[in-house]
């Protein structure tokens, strides 16, 4: 049993002869983590998840899932696509029976039915008559019923009301706690994932901007407020993001040494960290991905 859920090296995907959706991505996600894939719309999050799910072949580079190639890992991986595709003609109960048909031996009917029942869904309701949030619930039930070792969720919470969001996130976390399931979920809303995720993969413009344990990443960064005159001093640290307001300078930095007493330093929030890196695409990346992840432009 490998301790690596996903490992990518120089991973790239181009559709047709068009733009690269993802390029030069290098990262490693250990098992047992709940990983947030964060980035603006169109950053390549969905592509990354689809590649990991073995539903698409990469154009270049390599991706290993649960110690093997994504296609071979497919039976152990659950995937919920962004559009939550389901068979519209089937009822909720029939949809779950499809899961049982396609996963004989591993199907966890009780879990799948519990997820659906928690939403008060009528098992006899046709999928096409469901709301977006209800479809999400059925899609998640189908993915959880498979009892995967790795669960890939593309914008899982987008269509849910806050109550259902909390409840389903709780269900996912329980799954992770009980079975050690590695969960990867994408979102363009960072706050949504902050409490649930312990690992971050920040994607922007088809590249990995930041990857690693959230605690480590937060600890490596500091938010400082300094007098504008200290701009030179600031540049002795690794500056991710800085903005001057009047006589003051606010910056997100990775300190390379002790900070002057005159500066006010505080720990950044995950959102500040993410926004700082997204605002500055050229900011140096702190993970090993920075060195090995460079692909020929």
């Amino acid at each position: 049993m490998t301790d690596t859920a996903i490992e990518a090296a120089g991973l790239g995907k181009r559709f047709g002869r068009g733009k690269w959706a993802l390029r030069g991505c290098t990262f490693r996600l250990p098992t047992g983590r709940v990983c947030a894939v964060v980035g603006p719309n169109g950053a390549g999050k969905s592509t990354a998840l689809t590649l990991a799910a073995g539903l698409l072949a990469p154009t270049e580079g390599r991706i290993t899932v649960l110690g093997t190639d994504p296609a071979s890992a497919r039976p152990r991986v659950g995937h919920v696509a962004q559009g939550k595709p389901l068979y519209p003609r089937l009822t909720v109960a029939e949809t779950l029976r499809v899961g049982a048909d396609l996963n004989p031996g591993t199907w966890d009917a009780a879990t799948a039915e519990r997820v659906v029942a928690a939403g008060g869904l009528d098992p006899e309701a046709r999928v096409r008559s469901l709301s977006g949030g209800q479809r999400t619930r059925v899609a998640l039930a189908l993915a959880l019923g498979k009892r995967p070792e790795l669960l890939l969720l593309d914008e899982p919470m987008a269509d849910l009301d806050p109550l259902a969001r909390r409840e389903l996130m709780g269900t996912l976390m329980a799954q992770a706690a009980q079975y050690g399931t590695t969960i990867v979920m994408s979102s363009h809303v960072v706050a949504e994932l902050e409490d649930s995720c312990d690992h971050l993969l920040l994607v922007g413009g088809g590249r990995v901007r930041l990857a690693g344990e959230i605690d480590d990443l937060l600890a490596a960064h500091t938010r400082v407020t300094a007098p504008a005159d200290d701009a030179d001093l600031l540049s002795s640290h690794t500056v991710v993001d800085s903005r001057a307001t009047g006589r003051q300078l606010t910056a997100l930095i990775r300190p390379t040494g002790p900070l002057p007493d005159t500066w006010r330093a505080s720990a950044p929030s995950l959102e500040e960290l993410v926004l700082g890196h997204l605002r500055n695409p050229e900011a140096p990346v702190p993970t090993p991905a920075a060195e090995t992840g460079k692909a020929p432009a």
Binding site: M169, L172, M173, Q178, D195, S196
Partner: peptide, 17 residues
Amino acid sequence: PAAREVVEATAINPNTV
């Protein structure tokens, strides 16, 4: 409470518990 119960109720990461 088991980690599973805590995270199910609070939706926080199991590793945090």
